[in-house]
């Protein structure tokens, strides 16, 4: 297949089919992990950035990108992991935030990490199940590095909160 016929938009659209391995309702573009795709006719360079330094999902995402590009005949793929600018929850789109909520994960509700975090004050969060604000933090660290664990005191359901970073 003549791969040079693919535009950047087409490649982005193709890669948007790759879900986050741990939160499969949002894709790697909505999450802000995929930063750029460069195609010079023979080599495809994909630029990604990790959410957390030690995020174990990054390796899976790299493999998924290679597989996806391979499917359309692009086999010469280089994946660059960049740290700057550092990933922030600000890059999660509003649509993706709504998807997170519907999936049962409270989305990040602040633009950047706040200094109050040091003082140990937990913020008021809406339960993604029933919408109640009567919730409390169980642990700052949840099922994955990017999440904290909360519980709803009204519907009694525990839920994950996507921490601001």
């Amino acid at each position: 297949m003549n791969t040079s016929t693919y535009t950047k938009e087409q490649l982005f659209s193709l890669l948007s089919e790759i879900p986050d391995p741990e939160i499969p309702v949002i894709n790697i573009i909505e999450l802000g992990i995929l930063r750029d795709v460069q195609w010079d006719g023979s080599l495809c360079t994909v630029i990604i950035t990790p959410t957390y330094s030690g995020c174990p999902a990054m390796k899976v995402i790299e493999d998924d990108i290679r597989i996806k590009l391979n499917e359309i005949g692009i086999s010469n793929v280089k994946i660059d992991l960049v740290y700057s600018p550092a990933w922030t929850t600000d890059w999660i789109s509003d649509i993706a935030k709504e998807k997170l909520r519907a999936y049962g994960i409270a989305p990040p509700d602040h633009s950047t990490i706040d200094k109050a975090v040091l003082m140990g004050k937990a913020r008021e969060l809406k339960c993604p199940q029933c919408g109640s604000k009567n919730t409390e933090m169980i642990s700052q660290f949840g099922s994955t590095a990017c999440k904290a664990l909360y519980r709803c005191l009204d519907c009694k359901e525990p839920f994950d909160y996507f921490k601001c970073l």
Partner: peptide
């Protein structure tokens, strides 16, 4: 050094959570 600075920006956000945890 741009690479060191980039790693530091990323790590510092995470360290803030670590320090909060241990301080508590």
């Amino acid at each position: 050094d741009e690479t060191i600075a980039a790693i530091a920006v990323k790590s510092h956000k995470e360290i803030t959570y670590h320090l909060r945890h241990t301080t508590q």
